[in-house]
Nucleic acid binder design. Structure first.
Length: 424
RNA sequence: GGAGAGAUGCCAGAGUGGUUGAAUGGGACGGUCUCGAAAACCGUUGUGCGGGUAACUGUACCGAGGGUUCGAAUCCCUCUCUCUCCGCCA
């Protein structure tokens, strides 16, 4: 969430920035927060002053007792009663104002960075880079959901039987391909300086709040009622939350972590023609890169992370494009996001395979993730993350684009990992 | 699942109602000493939120939330978490 002090000091700039998300009521959102903040400060001043008075009186009673002046102490004690009552009311008032302010701040999304184009939705995203050539397929080329059946490598029906729709079973070379991709992605990240982490894939409520899935987006996550735990929708949640309530030293920055996890998404109500096959699943595998850095470095690092992701796609010989998301299409928490999309030639569609975001201090403020600089001052850090990469759509791209009459060709770089160069 | 113990500052660990934001030790940082280093000695070493141009200052925080009290790290209640032992188990 945004820092209330920043909202106070940069009201107009923030309203302006939020406008690029297509938010109609930005001014109203912000002004309500400012009003609550003002009343919070007034109330706190009032309460603090009164508390200072009563602290002094309590201390005075202690001194009188020690000096054996019990009767004087008793007089003073009697005088305090009404103050106590007032203090209690003020404290209650303050708590409820603070609560209201917090709720209000949770409603305000991150401010898009200056370079982010204004826009309402996907149509306003900017294509900033394209790479690779779209292959020319035979006329009888099949979409991946047909290919996986023909080669018997991914089985949706079995998944339905044991779990439900959107939980595929990977079989034989299909399963090996998953494992190969995961290892390839992890190895590449390690070469780029990331430290591998294998976190839990269920998290508590505090972690959900830390990275911004909660409140409001609990519908996205599977919830284990009995234990109050959420299945992670992305490794971002556990890996970024490793740094919740942490104060790092400057020389520990930037933190570069990578993790493979399964990801679980309920995706309620999103089933239809566009989400066939591997295009959208309830459970899928993903390797995620996460960085924590000093504010002045975060946009350089955003570029660095994109370059890493693009390098992966190039090594996999997949045609892709890079989009700079417009304000309206960005996630709630993000200040700037690039999406990478692979072209799935048989479907004739671009599939989002990675989303790389800079959250600036938005998550760090919730996480209380700070660093102590050389002057001994603490300041909020910036957090970033990106998929590197999400598997199912990569698999869809490989299957569709590399289909031949002899079978499906495995990208060269993966062959050492799969142990085979064709699925036939 | 059963039984017990505990939760204090960067860490270890005192503290059972009245200048305790918190003894002591360690660590870290700065200084003295040294050619340099070690040792020794001296000093510094929290966070949030307010007020103030600032120096500075108020307040809160000893797992969380309530309560008792003029006054709570210290007493009471609830919750959470951790650890140990037993059971079960990959």
């Amino acid at each position: 969430m945004l820092l209330v002090s920043v909202i106070r000091e940069q009201r107009d700039g923030i309203i302006n920035g939020l406008g690029r998300r297509g938010l109609k009521d930005a001014a109203e959102l912000i002004d309500k927060a400012i009003a609550l903040d003002q009343s919070r400060r007034d109330t706190q001043k009032h309460a603090d002053d009164l508390k200072a008075k009563s602290n002094a009186e309590a201390k005075r009673i202690g001194e009188l007792m020690k000096a054996g002046k019990a009767d004087e102490a008793a007089t003073l004690r009697a005088a305090i009663a009404s103050e106590k009552e007032q203090l209690k009311n003020l404290a209650q008032e303050l708590t409820s104002i603070e609560e209201a302010l917090k709720v209000q701040l949770y409603k305000i999304p991150n401010v898009p960075a200056e370079k982010v184009p204004a826009g309402a939705g996907a149509d306003d995203n900017l294509t900033v880079y394209e790479h690779g050539t779209i292959p020319t397929l035979a006329t009888d080329a099949l979409p991946h959901w047909e290919l996986i059946k023909n080669y018997d490598i991914i089985d949706f029906d079995l998944g339905i039987k044991i779990t439900g729709a959107g939980f595929p079973v990977y079989k034989g070379k299909g399963a090996k391909l998953q494992r190969a991709l995961i290892n390839f992605f992890l190895d590449e990240a390690e070469k780029a300086g990331y430290r591998e982490m294998l976190p839990p894939i269920v998290v508590n409520e505090a972690s959900g709040y830390g990275t911004g899935q909660l409140p409001d987006k609990e519908g996205q996550m599977y919830f284990v009622q009995e234990d109050g735990l959420y299945l992670i929708p992305t490794a971002e949640v556990p890996i970024t939350n490793l740094y919740r309530d942490v104060i790092l030293a400057e020389d520990q920055l930037p933190v570069k972590n990578v993790g493979y996890t399964p990801c679980f998404r309920r995706e309620a109500g999103s089933w239809g023609a566009h989400v066939r096959g591997l295009n959208r699943l309830h459970q899928f595998d993903k390797v995620e890169i996460v960085q924590v850095c000093k504010p002045e470095d975060s946009y350089r690092i955003l570029d660095e992370m994109c370059a890493h992701v693009q390098g992966l796609l190039e090594k996999l010989e997949l045609p892709y494009r890079k989009l700079l998301l417009c304000g309206g299409d960005m996630g709630f928490n993000s200040a700037m996001t690039y999406d990478m999309e692979v072209y799935a030639t048989a479907q004739q569609r671009w599939l989002e395979v990675s989303s790389v975001s800079n959250f600036e201090t938005y998550q760090a403020n919730r996480l209380k993730l700070r660093c102590k600089n050389k002057e001994g001052k603490t300041q909020l850090l910036h957090t970033l993350n990106g998929s590197a990469l999400a598997l199912p759509r990569i698999v869809a791209g490989i299957l569709e684009n590399n289909q031949t009459s002899e079978g499906i060709r495995i990208p060269k770089v993966l062959v050492p990992y799969t142990g085979f160069d064709m699925i036939s």
